[in-house]
Design a protein around this nucleic acid. Structure first.
Length: 510
RNA sequence: GCGGGUGUAACUCAAUGGUAGAGUACCUGCCUUCCAAGCAGGCUACGUGGGUUCGAUUCCCAUCACCCGCUCCA
């Protein structure tokens, strides 16, 4: 399967369009068309049903996209992302570029000839040569002493404020101020990942607000409200589905990395002693959810992060990854976040967010397990997985083999031909089904063409009224994946379709 | 962010310094009793903005979007 084919099918059949296409499109934004909106909504509804309605330990929440700016200070999104930052690729340290200073001690005539020239690199968090010298103490002095006796010439110092050193060839030699490894620093990036706006008519610093870069903080900010009013007790979770926004530097790969996207997140609160066990539970449960809904196991995998890959606040993290045509990428992350988030909000808000556990007679700040899924990424993965080109009677066919739960259209109803009262009966069946399911009626053109059209939309079943229907009241029902047909009573169509959608196997043989 | 490529109809593609053609799809009608049938008719396009030129879809520049590779990825 290649991505181009999927993109063109998505366009042709109305799953996904480029946003603002008549104006040339806008990078990082996509629209869901008539079939796409059904597919994505079905995925979100299934997630909500399985994680909220079917559980006794979960409640839902829907909070505002724009929140108090202090929320993003507590979460680390402001500050951490608003100044140009450099990252160390090795130790994963992240530093404000204007707070890293680099000094090179060197001796020798020919600076360009490294064989005849000796260099020692030092760096530190600070803005002066002085700071670098102090931070590196003994090593720095040793280097100075060594260079003083260099045979080829006198020693010199060069000071590099990092923000002014961009594009210098020496940049690649700069050592990390923490781990001291050379050449591990990324270019400074001045990007703030958050979209900014202003609450109120006048745009100034005082009323600057942000579009949320994740739904999680809304849950943490409401945690106390839910505990006080929701009659919940640990262990319990709060779930939310909603839009988030990130000003990605380079959106890529169709809808996979978009600047506006939808998340399906759970924050699960529990006693610190049980957190490890709940982490495992959610990691496995969430993985199984994708498998159960049709992602073949060999394209789906669960990957535990290496300890050095973890964010500093996380005790463990696992990614659920899918092998897309453009590479293996993350669908969902399950993170054991400890009490980091609630503690941060306690600190920044000054409110007590601890919890009194009646059963344990103990007060504590709960630990949090966060399964965080991307709705658009899941939609894309299910589309990729469903896309199949096969052959029916020697003719090539494109079919989307969606799980029935996700299929945008559950069934199509056709009269075999447009005469003899077949359309009337078919339309009556269609009306009955429509009260319960999203179904589609079509009477135009050859029957084979109508079947194929539904195959491309991923419709699992087609019901056809034929000549026999008019005399004995039975109709045929056709299975999308096998093209097999059998007869059912037209009066029992609603029940028959419900059974099939809920997983009843199709009859074998003819 | 860097490098390369692409941009013509809803989709896949042609041709062309003198304003474009096909297949598929779609619509209408006829026909049609089960897997993209046939016949007749019909709708729809040169991403955007500049420049060169008598004239630009074609050449040049810019821009936007998409794809590939690298980079990055809460």
């Amino acid at each position: 399967m290649d991505m181009d084919k999927l993109v063109s099918l998505c366009k042709r059949r109305g799953f996904i369009f480029p946003s603002s296409e008549i104006y040339g499109g806008i990078n990082g934004f996509w629209d869901y068309g008539p079939l796409g909106v059904e597919l994505k909504r079905n995925i979100k509804d299934a997630w909500w049903h399985d994680n909220v309605h079917m559980r006794d330990d979960m409640v839902g929440l829907d909070c505002s996209i724009i929140m108090h700016p202090r929320v993003w200070e507590a979460s680390g999104h402001v500050g951490g992302f608003s100044d140009p930052m450099v990252d160390c690729k090795d130790c994963k340290g992240r530093f404000r570029a204007d707070q890293v200073a680099v000094v090179c001690l060197h001796a020798g005539q020919d600076f360009a000839d490294s064989k005849r020239e000796q260099r020692f690199w030092f760096s530190a968090l600070g803005d002066s040569q002085q700071a670098v010298a102090e931070a590196n103490g003994k090593d720095y002095k040793k280097a100075e002493a060594k260079l003083a006796t260099h045979p080829n010439g006198s020693a010199a110092r060069t000071f590099y404020p990092i923000s002014a050193s961009l594009g210098q060839p020496e940049y690649a030699d700069f050592p990390c101020p923490t781990c001291k490894k050379q050449g591990t620093l990324t270019e400074p990036r001045a990007f703030n990942l958050m979209f900014e706006s202003h609450a109120g008519a006048i745009a100034d610093e005082a009323n600057k607000v942000y579009l949320r870069p994740e739904t999680a903080q809304g849950i943490f900010a409401n945690y106390k409200n839910v505990v006080d009013t929701g009659r919940v007790k640990t262990p319990f979770g709060i779930a939310q589905v909603g839009k988030s926004f990130r000003n990605e530097i380079n959106p890529r790969n169709f809808t996979f990395r978009s600047r506006e996207f939808e998340q399906m997140e759970i924050e699960f609160f529990c006693h610190p002693s049980e957190a490890a066990q709940w982490y495992k539970y959610w990691r496995d449960t969430r993985f199984q959810w994708y498998v159960d809904h049709g992602l073949r196991s060999d394209k789906l995998r669960l990957r535990d992060h290496d300890p050095d890959e973890l964010a500093f606040y996380s005790k463990a993290t696992a990614d659920i990854e899918y092998s897309f045509p453009f590479g293996i990428s993350e669908l969902e992350g399950i993170a054991h976040r400890g009490d980091y988030d609630l503690s941060q909000h306690q600190k920044f808000s000054g409110k007590d967010l601890s919890y009194f556990d009646e059963e344990r007679k103990e007060r504590y700040v709960p630990h949090v397990i966060e399964p965080s899924a991307g709705a658009d990424r899941a939609t894309l993965a299910f589309l990729c997985e469903a896309y199949v080109e096969d052959e029916v009677g020697g003719e090539a066919r494109t079919v989307l083999k969606f799980h029935p739960r996700f299929a945008p259209i559950k069934a199509a109803v056709f009269p075999l031909v447009k005469k003899d009262g077949m359309p009337e009966l078919a339309e009556k069946i269609y009306r009955d089904l429509k009260r319960q399911f999203n179904v589609f009626y079509d009477e135009k053109g050859a029957i084979g063409r109508r079947y194929r059209r539904q195959d491309e939309a991923g419709t699992p079943f087609c019901l056809t009224v034929d000549g026999q229907s008019l005399t004995d009241g039975t109709i045929t029902i056709r299975d999308r994946d096998t093209c097999r047909q059998w007869r059912i009573a037209s009066s029992g169509a609603v029940q028959a379709l419900r059974d099939l959608l809920e997983g009843q196997p199709i009859p074998s043989g003819e």
